[in-house]
């Protein structure tokens, strides 16, 4: 049996997962997201990354970005290297793509702010 806290919401439920013949039984969750998170932690743990990319603009030397959906936990630092290699020279908007299909993981790195573009 493994037990850990859910990171889905601020409740932080203490989840317990029991594995039997490849089947998982989850207890301690108070919603379906908790169950999904527990099973994913046991099979292929995933996380999001929020970071910044450098820009050429003096008024906003960095732009906040995130991955468009969760990535495998063990690839976090690989993706961070890609994010830190960017130097942005276009005034892109919130939601615009900064890196498409980063490292072939099927997710994009996207802007989370309109700081370069707000009138």
């Amino acid at each position: 049996m493994k037990s850990f806290n859910c990171i889905g919401c601020p409740k932080g439920c203490l989840l317990c997962v029991e594995e039997e013949n490849g089947e998982f039984t989850v207890t301690g969750n108070t919603c379906e997201n908790g169950k999904r998170f527990a099973i994913s932690e046991m099979t292929e743990p995933k996380r999001t990354i929020c970071s910044t990319v450098k820009t050429v603009f003096e008024d906003a030397p960095v732009l906040p970005v995130k991955v468009s959906s969760d990535i495998p936990k063990d690839r976090i630092f690989d993706v961070m290297r890609e994010i830190n290699a960017v130097l942005l020279d276009k005034r892109i908007d919130r939601g615009d793509t900064v890196i498409e299909n980063v490292l072939g993981l099927g997710v994009d790195v996207i802007s989370t702010s309109d700081i370069l573009n707000r009138k």
């Binding site: 601020p10 999001t48 929020c50 906040p64 995130k66 919130r94 989370t112 309109d114």
Partner: peptide, 17 residues
């Protein structure tokens, strides 16, 4: 810039900005 904002208001995990 981290995410987790707006879960109850928008049902989404938004970054602060």
């Amino acid at each position: 810039i981290h995410d987790g904002f707006g879960l109850s208001r928008f049902g989404e995990r938004l970054a602060g900005p």
